[in-house]
Amino acid sequence: MSAGSEPDHELLSLWLSGDSKKSEQGFTRAYHKYQARIMSLALRITGDHSAAGDVVQETFITVFEKIHGFRGQSLFSSWLTRIGINFALERKRKDSRLVGFFPKGTEDEESTADGSEIEDLRGSSPEQQSVDREFEAAVQSIIQRLSDKYKVVVLLRYMEELSYEEVADVLQCSVGTVKSRLNRAHKMLEGTLGPVVEKFGLRSQPTTSANEL
């Protein structure tokens, strides 16, 4: 992520400078900094690439239209992420109502068809890419079994690697609630990911100490 390191207050001051050229620059940078976060969360929530793309679109249009009223009660990133999650959940609900009428293709078919890219792995070999897709599909089928409130907390904490405070800021709940949800999520996932770790050779050491988390 090239633009990822630019602090939010800098791109916001550009964006809100009142100068249309600078403003466009600020928005564009914010988009490039956060689009992958929203895309990835939306993809895990909806399980569908094209739906996730729509979510990114709605999220950034909303953020663009609402930015002048943003008063900073939460971090800009939290606010944006919250809007993205809301759109993703909304989209998932809508789509699930239609599933009976229009059965969707599998995750694998979708991911090759629509041009969304795996961020970290561009340029990797076709073999590696196919392993990655298989890994994703395996994890996705497990994620799907979690209800949304647990899924979202796990994704924010472990996939996006946000701190408890940031997760709480996104979801506007207490840190204690975040922790208790994570606790429950761990309980529900217990034993399910071991086979995935084995199959894809992710276990670096046979015994895991708490420090590695």
């Binding site: 689009q35 992958a36 976060r37 929203i38 895309m39 990835s40 993809l43 895990r44 690439h49 996730a52 793309g53 990114v56 679109q57 969304s116 890219e117 795996i118 961020e119 970290d120 792995l121 990655d132 890994f135 994703e136 994890v139 796990v154 994704l155 904490r157 472990y158 996939m159 690697e161 999520a185 761990h186 996932l189 990911l193 995935v196 770790v197 894809f200 992710l202 276990r203 988390l213």
Partner: peptide
């Protein structure tokens, strides 16, 4: 859980 989710590829729109 931590290992798997951290390894999950992120996607670009």
């Amino acid at each position: 859980v931590s290992t798997v989710f951290r390894r999950l590829p992120r996607h670009s729109a």
